[in-house]
Design a binder for these strands. Sequence first.
DNA 1: CCGGAAATGGGTGTCAGCACCCATGGGCGA
DNA 2: TCGCCCATGGGTGCTGACACCCATTTCCGG
Lengths: 217, 217
Amino acid sequence: MTGPARILLADDHALVRRGVRLILDSEPDLTVVAEAGDGAEAIALARAEQPDLAILDIAMPRLTGLQAARELSRTMPGLRILILTMYDNEQFFFEALRAGANGYVLKSVADRDLVEACRAAMRDEPFLYPGAVTALIRDYLDRAARGQDQPERAITAREEEVLKLIAEGHSAREIAQLLFISIKTVDRHRANLLQKLGLRDRLELTRYAIRAGLIEP
Amino acid sequence: MTGPARILLADDHALVRRGVRLILDSEPDLTVVAEAGDGAEAIALARAEQPDLAILDIAMPRLTGLQAARELSRTMPGLRILILTMYDNEQFFFEALRAGANGYVLKSVADRDLVEACRAAMRDEPFLYPGAVTALIRDYLDRAARGQDQPERAITAREEEVLKLIAEGHSAREIAQLLFISIKTVDRHRANLLQKLGLRDRLELTRYAIRAGLIEP
DNA sequence: CCGGAAATGGGTGTCAGCACCCATGGGCGA
DNA sequence: TCGCCCATGGGTGCTGACACCCATTTCCGG
């Protein structure tokens, strides 16, 4: 017996943090030991507090929950990770799996499922909401049907970074200066994003990012 | 003595509703008597339950919190209204005041201020977060300085039509074909819109249209 | 150890967005 | 009636977005 699971909670809205904390702390086997307001703070607090489980919102300033999840699952392999998001979006769901998340919970059903998802993660079992399971099965069947000839490449970490900046209204030149890379490289990332997502221009990229919850309008 | 204030809570995320409910119900003078997941449901429940106070999120399906606030302040004059939102946006803030809201609270600071805002509303006093107060004062000073000499030309009907189409992602060429006018005229309307709204490009026009509720994201 | 993917960056060309210039005809209020 | 604003549209030119071409380095997994 080692006491309740120690949880790090990261969301940029204090109100959501407070609500989730009240829900989790009312369970005897779960306790929130730290709260972060952005992805960078989440990483710092995870290192300082060594929690058992991190609950990460996707849409956060500085680093998104997915970026933080990649970093945390790489540097702290024992840490369980739950992604908590507003949006039912398959692209981000698959990315969350690749980023090392143990579970993916929608905020719209989190009041019912979140506690169960935490317990599943602590047992090192995956937890997915029903829609995600459906998408996963469909994707599995798709791959089986195609014989994995096309692994349909996903958005990379760097591409997500560029996507966020484009959607925030920055020009290619500004992004190049922010990331210390050439305009041509920004052009290439943008082109890859447009091709992978099947979109036409940066305006559609912006809509996509808003719908996906990467940024706020 | 009439017992605790009866509150209607409207937000499309069950998780946020649950958090807010836990916060408010722990105060002896506040009690949540109904929860709505969208603006239309909020109006129906307000009529059925006759609460003292309605807390409305802006971003909701069917009817936004602002639309619901307009309807409620018109048909139920005794009802106090608090707008609760993610966005620190002056446009929304002024719209909320015009829609009859008694208070405007940001989700990012709601864990601290929400209870106080509810009590202020029940005393029929306004409650605004500090940034909103600053914006209100600046706007007042602006108007005083101009002495309303310039009615600051409004968007014309034709310009709004073009704005909508631009925000929906149509190119100037497409809009010209849709409206049976020349590309150059579309160019001119766009230029006038950019100048009147103080924006830079069609991407910012799109954000503006989304925020103004002209189109759906 | 080799092949592929990710990240980097250069060149070239087309086109749309946007700024600035200009003019004309119609409607409406002072 | 006169002037103003609106809607219309033409010309010119710059710049950024985007497509398609190319190459190099690094790193990781089979």
